[in-house]
């Protein structure tokens, strides 16, 4: 795992992960509305016994969501210790609650 990350490095990593998560959510929304726009005006077409637009947008969107999150968490998000001994202590509100191990 190498050297433990500093408090600042963890924040840089979470900036990046927040943007990636948001991008994934926007991509899913785009896929969803793309499918509705593409197939929505032909409600009589079926796929898996349900309206084609519905199967692709709602069920396909769901599967895409699960696959996207699996990839995001497996390959793009980093593991680090949530306790940061190097974090500034200035804003600690309740000394008794300190959680360091």
């Amino acid at each position: 795992m190498g050297k433990p990350m500093t408090y600042a490095e963890k924040f840089r990593a979470t900036d990046r992960e927040a943007v990636l998560t948001l991008a994934l959510a926007i991509a899913i929304a785009a896929f969803f509305w793309g499918a509705v726009a593409l197939f929505g005006d032909r409600p009589q077409d079926l796929l898996w016994g349900l309206p084609l637009w519905f199967s692709v947008s709602c069920l396909g969107g769901y599967l895409l969501s699960v696959a996207g999150v699996a990839i995001l968490t497996r390959f793009l998000m980093r593991d680090f210790d949530l306790d940061s001994p190097d974090a500034p202590a200035d804003l600690r509100q309740f000394e008794g609650d300190h959680h360091g191990r």
Partner: peptide, 22 residues
Amino acid sequence: IITGFLILGVVGKRLALLSRST
């Protein structure tokens, strides 16, 4: 379909870090 991961992915780690440091 995005609600399950969105909040955890966007603010999950940041809040966990800050909950501890503050």
